[in-house]
Amino acid sequence: MPLRLVLEPRQATAPLRALISLATTLGLAWAFGSLVFALAGADGVSGIGAAWRAMLQGALGSALASCWVALFMAPGLPPRLLLPVALAAGAAGGAAWAFAPALLKARLGVNEILSTLLLNYVAVLFMEHLYYGPWRDPAGLGFPGTAELPEAVWLPTFFETRVHLGLPLAIALAGALWWLLARTRWGFRARVLGLSPKAAAYAGFRSARITVTAMCLSGALAGLAGTGELLGVQHRVQDGLASGLGFAGIVVAFLARLNLLAVPLAALFLGALLVGADQLQTELRLPGTAVLALEGALLFGALLGEFLAANRLRLVRRGRKEPGHVG
């Protein structure tokens, strides 16, 4: 079947797109960035929840923010500034969505996995309210969704594919994030806090502040991911704008073993896989949730892989155990 897909003229661009073009890839690349960030900022387990929140709400919130810029401020802004302002609004929106759970977590220890998950439903409800209600396209023949955004805010694409400016931006951001975590004092502190909150207290770091900053930063990154999806691919706010993006981010970060520099590769891999699934889905007329099942299975597979890797390590370590550890 894949061969047929490649040869059929109608689908001729599919493999190429599968490799690099799908916008999911860049969404993922950003998603991973925010995820790793959150992981560095909080302890491993809670970081995942933070990232999850960042993913979905951040993506939606920021998409809404930039959409607002595009829809309502476009007439008043010089066209050249429109795209940067929309992107900035997206990032700011993402950070803002992240702020409340971050503060609740840092000050009161409210479990952010739960708070962010529950807020996801709120975000989706709010978005539905907007595109079913006040923001609905009057010319849309009753179809729920906003009007198409002006072309001035679309992210430029390359080579007639769906690869848009977001991809190089995402790769550059991966490098920048790596630098931030590895080379700056703030990054060092965030890593220490992530690995051992007790050590951070011992060293006198301002843990609450680092947590909030890290979570807001990850929210901003996720905001960019959502904005990329909006301005680069869909060009309107509609149903399923960011669906699957958050979960995909978790899977990617896990596949990359939380190594920032490995994330673009992992994102590319998952992106290619999802494109394949996309094709299959069309062929077999599967519902969109099939992607969720695939991601769930992939996550289980990755967990199994981690178990196997860890156990090999454990055996090696047992072999090196010093007498001092035995007694």
């Binding site: 995942i48 999850w52 979960f247 978790i250 896990f254 599967l286 519902p287 969109g288 949730t289 099939a290 992607v291 969720l292 099942a293 695939l294 991601e295 769930g296 299975a297 996550l299 289980f300 967990l303």
Partner: peptide
């Protein structure tokens, strides 16, 4: 992570 994977899998499988 395992629990999240199960939630994903459940949502996806039931959809399909």
């Amino acid at each position: 992570l395992s629990g999240l994977a199960l939630s994903l899998l459940g949502a996806g499988l039931t959809g399909v």
